[in-house]
Design a protein around this nucleic acid. Structure first.
Lengths: 357, 357
DNA sequence: ACCGCCTTCTTCATCGTTGAAGTGCGACCA
DNA sequence: TGGTCGCACTTCAACGATGAAGAAGGCGGT
């Protein structure tokens, strides 16, 4: 920049203005500056330096629990991203997808070193150091889904907002739906309970309660509450747990719980992706849905209507929009209180009265 | 940072080292520095300033022709993103999704102002000013798909690499497949030809040739070449053109071309997403596929097997991997030559011999 | 003729770091 | 006992820009 300025015998500030404040100099001089820049191979003001000086960089960071390829594969997190970008994009803000890693140190370093004006963190376990790192940066932060607002309060993060749903109540509702249909032999297929993956398999109530993913914990608690209210002994309900929310895990889980005798009449999956795998397994076993087994999911993902899946709808896109709005409005300075979005039971063909029709 | 240094009576550099080079100071002092930082509310070294000083920021920018929500909706661009992140993420590099905009000035500004070490630009029209902006920045740049290497050479962008496929040859192959099956009455459903959307509708050969999206132009040229070689008068082939590559546009296009008399026996879609819409329309019209009409797509997207769609497979994920590799290896300093990936005809149930079986 | 104002540019200081090179000092070795 | 080494830290000088405030000149109004 100084070279260009020297070339024309003007000040560096004038070159700067040629790019950022065209009204601050004559059109003629501006032309000459731009021409000289071209000639000297000056690529224009360095955004990093400008960002330093201005104190903002025009980007929002997005950090996930899982890796990026997972984020791109999961319909719900795509909805989230879509929501975020639908607000950020018109505002001219970029989205920095922060690289994940199994190594907590690298995860933290990526958040610490991200060149962003604000952060959205999503779906972290209660003990994820990534959250602390985000808070330490003293940037506006919005947490989506988990950890829960309660946990945030514990961490003493006053500048941190939260958006999510009442997972427990939503889970209760869908379980109640099955109970209303007469189901008494339930089974659950769950996704991850802890950051450190524990063994795939059936887990007892104590383990369920100790899940460090709030969403997992709350949904399980919701199912349990509804079941117990209906007089079901929860210890007889097989709860299978795998690390991820993928159809493959859902298939593995469904296969495991459907092997239990007496066979459950309803399989409750913690997500639609798990349910997708469960439906596949039912088909493979020759079990009719819902005549032999009812299968329900969670999320009402884009795939759910096609699968005819009974599920709980939550508006992931809206979550993203709200989070981004939060950060862009008022520069995200003021943290809003926790924001609970509505959920809605969506009954489709995968759930029905117990027993052959 | 200086505050923390002053508090302890050490130099600023030592504080810096406490964060970045733990081996450069005693563990004891490091502890004290970190404690003092905590006490004073120092959030650790500012990544922007560090980025300025170091000359790199640990992020790769990704700029699209379309907006971000489109990128998240399209299976092929998701594959691309997955490929990019599968390489960038383990390397600890973030992905900055650069906001799109209908206004070219904003598009350009977003690229000019992005805090990144390198850029991946994808699917731009030949005349998109975004590309020039990317090149001007003198960062390593990889272009995916379009503009073509020829156009890049024209622009005189020596530091710019390219990854893509031979769209023309691939298009020729799938058209030849239909011709081999005996089809003589072809129709084409195309996505965008120019950045500035022109009216939806049928377009003649001159318009087809003048498309500024190289991919569109080349695929159309490929279909045409194969058809003409088989003695078909291309001017009799209805080519419908809509702005986007979505099932909705595919449906609109298919409806339009299937209304032409005599009705085409094969509908060639420029993408699997368009073909998805075309298949829906066929079903709606009561036309059996492939007995009444063959439908083919392009891309072999993740949705294609489920649709039973005959298509041309291209490895979008691999493109992303190569692009990211290119930029991370050797700091992307050296631009590699153009890199053509293979394509492969994938025959499924949506194409068959002409006429009722 | 004088004043004030606008336009157009300049000066100055600063944003917060970190590479490269330097200093002081105890330890180790012959 | 002198010399060399390595550790732990410091000094210096950028990295490249831009906000705030200031100065020169021209111009219109009274």
């Amino acid at each position: 920049m100084h070279q260009v300025a020297a070339e024309l015998g003007v000040s560096a500030k004038t070159v700067s203005n040629a790019y950022n404040r065209p009204d601050q100099l004559s059109a003629d001089l501006r032309e000459r500056v731009l021409a000289a820049a071209e000639r000297l191979g000056y690529p224009g003001p360095d955004p990093v330096a400008a960002g330093l000086r201005r104190g903002q960089v025009g980007a929002i960071g997005v950090a996930y629990d899982n890796g990026l390829s997972y984020a791109f594969a999961d319909p719900v997190s795509l909805e989230l991203l879509t929501g975020i970008s639908s607000v950020a994009e018109p505002a001219g803000a970029g989205l920095l997808l922060i690289p994940g890693s199994a190594d907590p140190r690298r995860r933290v370093a990526a958040v610490t070193g991200a060149l962003v004006d604000a952060l959205i963190v999503s779906s972290l376990s209660d003990d994820d150091p990534l959250l602390a790192a985000a808070i330490t940066r003293r940037l506006p932060v919005v947490v989506i889904d988990q950890p829960s607002p309660a946990r945030l309060a514990e961490l003493g993060a006053p500048g941190t907002s939260w958006v999510g749903i009442d997972d427990r109540a939503a889970a209760e509702a869908i379980c109640a739906h099955l109970l209303d249909l007469g189901h008494r032999r339930l089974a659950v297929v769950s996704f991850g309970m802890h950051r450190e993956p524990i063994e795939r398999g059936l887990v007892d109530e104590a383990a369920q309660r100790s899940a460090t993913y709030a969403v997992t914990r709350d949904r399980l608690a919701g199912y349990r509450a509804a079941a117990q209210r209906a007089g079901i002994d929860w210890s007889t309900v097989p709860v299978f747990h795998g690390p991820d929310s993928t159809p493959a895990e859902g298939a593995a889980g469904a296969a495991a719980v459907l092997a239990v005798e007496p066979r459950p009449t309803a399989v409750i999956c913690l997500s639609d992706r798990l349910a997708e795998g469960a439906l596949r397994v039912c088909a493979g076993l020759g079990l009719a849905v819902p005549a032999d087994v009812s299968v329900v999911g969670f999320d009402d993902a884009t795939t759910a209507p096609g699968l005819g899946l009974t599920t709980v709808a939550q508006d992931a896109r809206r979550k993203g929009e709200i989070a981004a709005d939060q950060l862009l409005a008022a520069g995200g300075r003021r943290a809003a209180g926790p924001r609970w979005l509505d959920t809605r039971l969506v009954v489709r063909g995968s759930s029905g009265r117990v027993g052959r029709v």
